[in-house]
Design a protein around this nucleic acid. Structure first.
Lengths: 227, 227
DNA sequence: AATCGATTGAAACGCTTGTTTGATTTCCTC
DNA sequence: GAGGAAATCAAACAAGCGTTTCAATCGATT
């Protein structure tokens, strides 16, 4: 058990940890206060004693997971002069590592993913404290990469394109695994390999790296870029 | 009520419909047999009479939604000679329309999305009958677009990049709306606008359309495409 | 050692859940 | 129109849920 060593002597902390894992695995409705308390080695009454009710326990456990995650995965920082393309690769790599990394994705990510997919009250806080700053960094890199030639709205769409590519593997990873032949999933769909692909794809779209295929099909003018 | 006109006189059908909506909205655990039956105008016992238990009702309702969706959104077909770039735009557009389209996304899509994000038994069937064929069409278009110059594994990754970009708006739409300034979400993030962006982004990455920004920053060689 | 608030514990509460029952109604067949 | 299977209904069931209760225990302070 990866986290059990860090299991605090403080019962409040223990419950928070067990709750996070349980909520992440089963979802809010299916997770039961009794199971959480059993896993935490606490009495059922402890939840109401420390948190009031199940709902507030949920909110707290999301915040707790989020803070723990922020602590162990600091935002990327670069030495001045680092090429923007390198920054992009680093950013995508660390995002994918955070999402898919390690042996299996930690329960904190699962829990946060649930919030993103079906937001509750805890979501806004999550976005403001965790998502938006990261997104801001990405936008900065993209702005640098495009030589500040694009309007902000366009840069944002580029950013969402990048995040979307990574997000798919995390949110719908099981389906992706079904769509890709068995052997390939290990060889071509590691966090590293995906990061390489997403980076290359994006740099090519921006025009900083070579495109995937050379034109010359005669279809170039068939669809002008909108506007 | 959009579907109420199609509400069959057959109670089995009515329950299936109400169940789909309820499961889509609340999820399996939170949806209750009583609510479903009330919405369907049926007695609680009807569920067990027609389906045995809640779990089998769920399976059936997923299949039912999936079949209904297949019926109303046929796979795209193109006249011979249609430019591949146009096909890509059509494909992306129809996928986004299916995901986000209409006034609000239909409950069938929500239900299927739940299956994708946290697969149950119904998922494999869903992938084989619904997702994989569509994915195959996309791969065909991409293969055509790249002049069959890329290995299949590479084409698949391109396909996943495209789907990921669209998927984000559907699965994490609420978060996207938080990250984008209020006015912009209506102007730049309609299904049409997103389709245009994703298509342009992809075509640029492949090298069939102009990149988003001209190079010349001196960072081109900073990160060669992997391998 | 006594005191008192903070914490824990076993048990029960009230409610909702999925499911079953058995009587009643409906609808078709002969 | 009588007979009988199919379908519907109100009511109840047992089990599980979140929550509460209140007595027992702990731990620091006096």
């Amino acid at each position: 058990m990866p986290d059990s060593a860090a299991e605090s002597r403080d019962p409040r902390e223990r419950i928070l940890l067990a709750a996070g894992r349980e909520f992440a695995e089963r979802g809010y409705e299916a997770a039961t206060v009794r199971d959480i308390c059993t896993a935490a080695g606490a009495n059922v009454a402890a939840v109401n004693y420390y948190f009031g009710d199940k709902h507030r326990l949920y909110i707290e456990s999301v915040k707790h997971a989020h803070e723990a995650r922020l602590r162990q995965v600091p935002q990327p920082e670069w030495a001045p002069g680092t090429p923007a393309a390198q920054k992009l690769r680093d950013f995508v790599g660390s995002m994918l590592d955070r999402m898919l990394g390690g042996d299996q994705p930690p329960w904190q990510v699962r829990l946060m993913m649930r919030e993103l997919l079906q937001p509750t009250e805890a979501c806004r806080e999550l976005v403001e404290d965790y998502i938006r700053p990261h997104f801001g960094i990405l936008l900065g890199v993209l702005d640098e990469l495009t030589g500040s030639a694009l309007p902000e709205s366009e840069v944002r769409r580029l950013g969402l394109s990048i995040i979307g590519q990574c997000f798919l593997y995390r949110a719908a990873g099981d389906v992706v695994a079904m769509l890709v032949p068995g052997g390939e999933i290990d060889a071509y769909h590691t966090p590293q390999a995906i990061a390489d692909h997403v980076t290359r794809f994006t740099l090519a779209a921006i025009g900083v790296a070579a495109p995937f295929a050379r034109p010359g099909l005669g279809t170039v003018s068939a669809l002008e870029s909108p506007r």
